[in-house]
Simulated assay, not measured.
Amino acid sequence: MSIVLMPEKVDFRISTTDLIATYSESDGVTLRVDIQTRKDLPLDQYQEAALTFSTVAEIRCVTLNFFELYTGQVEGIHHQEDMLTFWERHGYPPDPGFYQVMNSSILDEKGALFDPRNRLDLKHYLVIGYDSYVEVIASSYQVQR
Rank of each mutant, 00 (worst) to 15 (best):
Q36V: 06
I128Y: 02
L41F: 04
L41Y: 03
Q80F: 15
S139V: 02
G111L: 08
I137G: 00
Q80V: 12
D34A: 14
F98W: 05
R60L: 14
I77Q: 06
E68L: 13
S15G: 06
Q45H: 15
Q100T: 12
V127G: 02
L120W: 06
S15Y: 08
G72V: 10
L43W: 05
V56L: 06
S139Q: 11
M83F: 00
A49C: 09
M83K: 07
R38K: 12
R89V: 04
V74Q: 08
I106N: 06
G76I: 05
S15A: 12
S2D: 14
S139C: 11
V127W: 05
E75L: 14
Q80K: 13
Q47W: 09
E58K: 11
P116Q: 08
N65E: 14
E88G: 00
V29Q: 00
Y130E: 10
I137L: 07
D44T: 12
T37W: 04
V29H: 03
A112V: 13
R117E: 15
S139E: 10
P96C: 08
A21W: 05
T37G: 07
P93T: 04
Q45A: 11
L122Q: 06
L19R: 05
V62K: 08
Y92R: 01
Y23C: 09
D108F: 10
E8H: 01
G28Q: 05
T71V: 12
S140Q: 11
H90A: 10
G97F: 06
S132I: 01
T71S: 13
V134G: 00
V136M: 04
E135T: 09
Q100H: 13
V134N: 03
T30W: 03
L31K: 04
V4M: 10
V4E: 13
P116R: 07
Y46K: 14
E25Q: 15
K9Q: 14
E81L: 03
D108R: 12
L84Y: 02
H124S: 07
L41H: 02
L113H: 10
G72Y: 10
Q144L: 13
T63L: 10
E25I: 14
